[in-house]
Design a protein around this nucleic acid. Structure first.
Lengths: 93, 93
DNA sequence: TAATTCAGTTTATAATATAAACCAAATTTT
DNA sequence: AAAATTTGGTTTATATTATAAACTGAATTA
């Protein structure tokens, strides 16, 4: 049986990647709302995806407030697609 | 976003359930080989699936050696199918 | 100016997965 | 016929992971 990339096999990280697969970019607040996660958890998981090179993170300012914008990288896209293929073999799809 | 049943969202438990979805029954040794897991890990995860009521486990003898036979329960089948539906919403399938 | 909110990060804790160590019975080796 | 090895597991300890709680610094409101 194929291995399931443990970095992607996590509900929150998978949710983030799933969102980022479908949009150009998404900011911290949006991801937090969509995934219904706490800020702390999201922050940690984004760091892991960043360290893996699966997403890129731009920390800037929107007016006077901080704004963190995330987007998926080609490596992330690739990993996600491989993960989906591997999962299919478990799900009978 | 839908919740992913944490009992099924684990590589080894999912692998076991995936196998049991497709066969009448499977014994410990077979599951261990197919999933390439250690006996200890498999034993622990089978216990969890048993406690959840997702599988049934019959401990008997095959000739002179112990033999543990597992099969999926209706509740397990149900949970697996719901898990697959939930996952689909993450994977764009 | 003191309390509140916003957008996060850091750190501590709880939960989980995994392997190492163990056990009893059967089998093989010397 | 002991002694060592294998088989089919279980129990327990450890490493990893996920999660929330506590914190920070700047902006906003009361």
């Amino acid at each position: 049986m194929k291995e399931l990339n443990p970095l992607l096999h996590s509900q929150l990280r998978l949710a983030v990647m799933s969102i980022l697969m479908n949009v150009e970019e998404a900011d911290f607040v949006y991801l937090k709302e969509k995934t219904e996660s706490t800020a702390g958890n999201l922050s940690v998981q984004l760091d892991k995806l960043l360290s893996a090179g699966y997403i890129s993170v731009e920390k800037g300012m929107a007016g006077k407030r901080p704004r963190t914008i995330c987007s998926i990288t080609p490596a992330g896209r690739n990993a996600f697609e491989e993960y989906v293929e591997a999962l299919k073999s478990y799900l009978n799809l």
